[in-house]
Amino acid sequence: MGGAEILVRARGLTKRFGDFHAVVGIDFSISRGEAFGFLGPNGAGKSSTMRMIGCVSPPTSGELTILGLNPVTDGPAIRARLGVVPQENTLDLELTVRENLLVYGRYFGLPRAVIRERSAMLLDFVQLSDRAGDQVEPLSGGMKRRLVIARSLINEPDILLLDEPTTGLDPQARHIVWDRLFRLKQRGVTLILTTHYMDEAEQLCDRLVVMDGGRIAAEGSPRALIQRYSTPEVLELRFDPGDHEQAAEKLRGLPAERLEVLADRVLIYITNGDEALAAVRGLGLEPLTSLVRRSTLEDVFLQLTGRHLDD
């Protein structure tokens, strides 16, 4: 093939809990050095998929190969080469910041001297060196998340799995995490992440799949997905709640590619937003606010599923 080495490959991958299908026959391949994302709302099946890749949840059916190995029979060997940042922090609150790395490294069977050296570097990398001797509990949410990221790197993994790395963090803390993940990506670490933030997916992912209801709705680079499933620009209009319905009705006459009438806004998908706004005014409509913006993955998701990512 000549392409990059495939590290994770899934065919018809399925996860059932009792009668409930959390993941329904999905296919994907992830290459070495890639930053690959699963974008989808709550309940889409992202964590279920990540746990199967992390070899802590056996697939119900389908094929899954990780680093050329079978997760069911070679779980320990695969996990030895993975770094995992689970959705919920699983930090050890009975240990200090540094001890969290030491003990975790021991779980991998690493010699203490190696762990000590790596911990110092990793704490520096996530800007927690000055908290090394502290208890974990009083750390802020962003610091805890960074500590989990440092912990996940202790075994110098081939693949880093990040399940919603910045959910629940304030904007500043998110940016610090993004910056660290971006550096890892620059160093060629293979990242697999899930998110329900379209900006996170756009910033970090080379390629992603849009997941909904346990299925993959679309796949591609952020740019390709936007090109394929949305228009270059979007005109967002807000009307007085009283006029909302009536205005939306009138707008249907516009030569737009697509029109989404939301509870509080109308989205007009179009190539040129400014021209569209002029056309709206030409219809005799005067919106309270108007905004011309580029299409995002949020629009892609809306187009694919008719819903919002954070619903």
């Binding site: 992390g54 802590v56 779980g75 320990p76 060997a77 996990r79 030895a80 993975l82 995992v84 689970p86 919920e88 699983t90 930090l91 050890d92 609150l93 009975e94 975790y104 779980y107 991998f108 069977g109 075994n155």
Partner: peptide, 14 residues
């Protein structure tokens, strides 16, 4: 509560 085993099971430990 402490999820100590959840953390351990993500490593080669079984």
């Amino acid at each position: 509560y402490a999820k100590v085993y959840d953390a351990a099971l993500a490593t080669p430990l079984g």
